[in-house]
Design a protein around this nucleic acid. Sequence first.
DNA 1: CCCCGAATAT
DNA 2: AATATTCGGG
Length: 245
Amino acid sequence: MANEKVTLTVLVVDEDDSSLTIVSNILSSWDYKVLTANSVDNALKTLREYEGFLDLVITEVHMSGIKGYEFQQCIKDEFKLPVIMMSTDAGKKEVTSNSEENKEALHLLKPICADDLKDVWKYAMAAKEKKPVIQNESSSEEESSAEKIINQDIDSSAPSTVTHEKKRKRKYNRRRSIEMNNENHSEDSYRVQKKPKMVWTTQLHNLFMTAIKKLGYDKAVPKSILEVMNVPSLTRENVASHLQV
DNA sequence: CCCCGAATAT
DNA sequence: AATATTCGGG
């Protein structure tokens, strides 16, 4: 019933104020709701205060008072949020090693630029519960629709360097929700593409717009747009159709 | 055959 | 109304 505009909320944590401001500004300009914290303490405060409201955390690795990864673990464990790390020395030892479920931990190299952040919404989205829109095609009502969680896989590109990989793939994963003892609320956005119609979220639309701008009006054809957007599971037809509107 | 934009269908 | 699918042409 309630499927409307989505605003992703991001908590940015860094002890360096200028960095905080930069990231914050970039994200804000894309309709993200941005909260900031300049210390672990403040971050935790905000985390608790906005519990259930946040979608993503972006944090500097080196924070005083705690080891970066404990912090990350803590956030993931307690708040079940995707965490993206930032630092000036990505690729260092623990960064990549100390991660069991670090699948969602993108690591960004400072200085952060807009390009680095353009994909973060995917992480937030992936972590959110997807609300599938199932539509039945046939008239038989005997339907057992238990699993309708459609999940798009996340395509992580190399940090801060543009790699042009040609990849066009379509892949769906089904994932069972394994939550039983957690109060869970707040949900809205999702993007699906299995059976149901896809949904153009505002983030998706932003990406779309950005792509067109980057290409120029005359060069903005579906194929190019699709490539620039680089969203897995998005088809050329999707883009073409959207282009008409 | 690939891909576009427009038209049309759901 | 928003997306998908089909159509005609380059």
